[in-house]
Nucleic acid binder design. Structure first.
Lengths: 235, 235
DNA sequence: AGGAATTTGTGCGTATGTATC
DNA sequence: AGATACATACGCACAAATTCC
């Protein structure tokens, strides 16, 4: 086996493929290479790749036709959201959706990592749901030089769809870090100021068995870091 | 592992599958799900399931075709080998299980047929269920010369597994006789003395439309009759 | 129309690492 | 130590569905 202590290889493969599909690297209806070619190209075995493909099929992102091929099926309501597929229901699955809470252009926070040339950024706050249930809050920073203004209605569809079609940004790499530190210690300034539902959710999270988790992501677009995401919730 | 001092899981799986096949839950020639799916569906690993399937194949209940699938093969002589699956739900099917009510060593009843050299026998009384519902009572007599004592815990699930592994008895022939005579006429002395549930069940049986049925079996082990079974219930 | 080629589906053997009894 | 069980991973051979010529 691999035993890098990391996630199983077939999970890594699945997540990588989901990211690529969500980022629009495959056209809708596009046929993937034959499994054997794909596997050798990815440096894995057919069986392992097939486990990953089966996962994509279960998520509705892929149609597998015996004797024909594996075909990408874009699902607009899903595509962005699988960006952060770490957040899944126990036992897997759950249909991810997101409510955009706010979009503001403002100076980047001091404690953010470097993610673009500008001193300003767009702060996007979203409520993440699985099958309608709130499971996480996330704060996404997009570098200010990428676009002048973003309206909340621009993000009605998929974040990645917006990046790709409106900004011409294609995702080439994503780095994720997950911490199991208790949530309140991380809660960024201002985050808990959201009213009602959100504050209540944070409260519940901090008291839940096992607490919550925090995830940080940085996203590379064509080689330039331009996005920074922090996220808290159950994993 | 499983522990609980019970049988190995692959044996339990094998017996469960045999019961289901013998009970007609799978049509003759039916193809089982892929091993990987089946294993996850049964909450076990592929390796363990494959051990069980190999056992079915050895018993002739399954044909395993490389690259194609696992196909159920009904074998009349085997369903009688597994003896007591005449009792089926109307329309077929039903998952048979059994609760051992009592195991006692005592002198053979006068009205029993000849089924072994000893004057004593082990009387095993079981409550037979299909999909959890009580459908029959059975009284099994094993010749006393076969083994000194039997504990109720020895009879975990399959009587024949116990015979084979603990007593070294291999079934070579089973003779079944079924009678549709009304139940009360047959009811053996002492049987109705079982309290509560059992007596009540007998009562209901005798009043049910069509009455009940009675089945007698004698079993040969390596040429010597050593077991006698009488059974009452719906068929 | 029909056979060959391509591609996915499936069983099978093997191997490693972990855990439990 | 050994048996059992699980998860992961690799690779092969054959079956079956589809597509191509």
């Amino acid at each position: 086996m691999e035993s890098t202590g990391a996630l199983p290889k077939y999970i890594q493969l699945s997540e990588m493929l989901i990211r690529r599909i969500a980022a629009g690297q495959f056209a809708d209806g596009a046929r993937l290479p034959p499994e054997r070619d794909m596997a050798s190209g990815l440096g894995t075995s057919v069986g392992t790749l097939r486990k990953a493909l089966a996962d994509l099929e279960a998520k509705g992102l892929l149609e597998r036709i015996h004797g024909s091929g594996n075909y990408v099926r874009h699902r607009p309501e899903v595509s962005s959201l699988y960006a952060f597929f770490r957040i899944e229901k126990v036992g897997g699955g759950g249909l991810p959706t997101a409510d955009v809470l706010s979009v503001d252009r403002m100076t980047k926070p001091a404690d953010a990592p470097e993610f673009g040339p500008s001193a300003e950024g767009h702060r996007i706050r979203r409520l993440r749901r699985l099958d309608g249930e709130v499971v996480a809050l996330e704060e996404i920073w997009l570098d200010g030089d990428q676009v002048g203004t973003i309206g909340i209605n621009d993000l009605s569809e998929s974040l990645y769809h917006f990046y790709r079609t409106r900004l011409g940004l294609m995702i080439v790499r994503v780095e994720d870090r997950v911490s199991v530190a208790p949530v309140p210690a991380w809660t960024p300034a201002g985050f808990q100021l959201h009213a009602g539902q959100i504050a209540g959710y944070i409260e519940r999270l901090s008291q839940a068995p096992g607490g919550g988790a925090v995830e940080f992501s940085r996203t590379w677009f064509d080689g330039a870091k331009a996005e920074y995401v922090s996220r808290m919730g159950k994993i």
